[in-house]
Design a protein around this nucleic acid. Sequence first.
RNA 1: GGCGCGAUGGCCGAGAGGUUAGGCACGGGUCUGCAAAACCUGGUACACCGGUUCAAUUCCGGUUCGCGCCUCCA
Length: 470
Amino acid sequence: MKIYNTHSRSIETFEPLQAGRVGLYTCGPTVYNFAHIGNYRAYMFEDILRRQLKASGLQVTQVMNLTDVDDKTIRGAREAGIPLAEFTARFKQTFFDDLATLGIERAEHYPAATDHVPEMIELVRRLEARGYAYRSADGSVYFPVAKYAAYGRLAHLDMAGLKAGARVAQDEYEKDSLADFALWKAWDEADGDVAWDSPWGRGRPGWHIECSAMSMKYLGESFDLHTGGIDNLFPHHENEIAQAEAATGKPFVKYWMHCAHLQVNGQKMSKSLGNFFTLRDLLEKGFRGREIRYVLLSAQYRQTLNFTFEAVQAARSSLERVDDCVQKLRERLPPGGAKAGKAPAMPAWVADARTRFQAAMEDDLNTPEALAALYDLVHETNRNLAAGSLGPAEADHVLTVFESMDRILGVIVRPEDLPDASVQALLDQRQAARVAKDWKRSDEIRATLAGAGWEVRDTPEGQKVRKRVA
RNA sequence: GGCGCGAUGGCCGAGAGGUUAGGCACGGGUCUGCAAAACCUGGUACACCGGUUCAAUUCCGGUUCGCGCCUCCA
C-alpha cells in the first residue's frame, strides 16, 4: 500500500515496524461542543485508513484521544456552571453517537486526558531530566525549542526565519523564546478547581503533552502511523515529536498522514457565514448518516472537499441506485438465503472491478477512483441483468465483491427492508386490481403505499417494493 | 513577509504527455396501462498568458483568483 507521508512529502510504500500489525494514533476531539462535519471528515478519513489496513491483513491498534481538559473545556464548564467532568461527559457521548451515525468503526482505545495526568507528569519529568524543560516565574514548565535541533522538520518551518505572528501569548515574557510551548501550566484563577498536584506545583498539563504521553503508553515509544487534520501539522504534531523524541531518544512516528479541510459552498466553514454545520444540523434537514458518509469519502482525503447540499442529494440518488442493484442481486440468489454454489468462476468483469477497486485504495486511499470501480460493477451488473445473462452464481460473485468493497466504504450493503403483512396485503389488492385492469384502483393503492414510505414498481416479474427515503 | 495546497463540463470529483474517469442533474430513445427502475444515447470540461514538444488540460515559467499554516483550529 502506498501512502503520502507528510514527513517526507512524498508517496511511500507502507511497511509496518512489526510485521502484521499497525499502531495508529489519530488525534481526536476536544469535547467542548458538537463536532462539525469538517471535524468528521478527519475521523472519516481515519476510518477509511483503518479499514483499508485491516483489509490488507494487518492487525490494527488504533488510539484516539479525547481532550477533556484545556482552555475551551474549562471555559465551557464554567459557563455551564457544572463540573468539568460532567460537562465533557455530555460531549463525549454525543461524539460517540455521531461516530455511530456515520458508521465509523470504534478504535481500540479512547484515552481521556484527565485519566492520564500521571503519565504526562512522568513524561515531563523525563524531559526535565534530559534538560528539555525549564520553569518560568509563575511555575509553568516549558519546552525549549531551541535545544531540539530537529524542531520544524515535519512542518518544514525554518524557526530562525519565523516572524512573530499576531497571536503573541500574553505570558510571552515568561518564556525564554516565543516558540517555546507549555508542558505544564501553573494553576490560574480561571482554572477554578481544575488542577492536579505535580512536582512543579498545582496546575494542569499543556495540550500537546497528552498526545505524546498517551500514544506512547498504548502504542510504544515508536509506532507506525499518526494522523490528523492538516491544521494539526503545526504546531501540535511538531510539538508531539519534539516532546517524544527528546524524552526517549528514539524515532517517534514512521508515517504522518494529514487530511485536507472541508469547505462549504467554496468557502471555509465559519459561524459568521452561517455555513457551519454539525452532523446534527444535517440530520435535522433530513439527510442520513450514510449519505453524509458518502459525501465525505467522495473526494480523496488530501484534497479540499467542497460540501454542498446538492452533493448530499447526489449521494442519496447514487446510493439508491446501488441499493437497487444489490436488491436485484439478492433476488437472483436461490430461495432460502443459501448461497449458490461457486462452481462457475468469477466473471472477468467482476474480477476487473474488484482489482480496480483494490488498486485505487492501495494508491493512497483514492476513494473517488474506488467508487468509479464500484459503479463499473453496478453498471455491468445491470447490463447483464437486463440481458438475462446473470444467474445465481454470478449474482453470488457480485454480492461477494460488493461486500468486500463495503468492508472499506461502509455505505453499500444494508439489511433488506422487507414489507410487513399490512403492506403485503395492499400489494395483493393492487395485484388483483391490475389483473382486472382497474388502473384507477391500482394507482390509488400505489399512492397509499408511497405515503407509507414504500415505492412500488411494476416489472416483468411483477410488483417490486422498496423502502424509499422521504 | 515566510511556507504550502488548489482552479476540470449545471453540481460533486478522478486522471494521465496523444486513448470514455465515475456519480448526480439535464435532453433524446427502448421498455411500459401510467409511473419508476434499468438499458441505449447526447452535451464536445480542463482559470489566464507564455514556453518545451510532432502532440499539454497533463511538464516548465509567469499572472489572476480561492484556501490553509506561521505557537494550543479536523
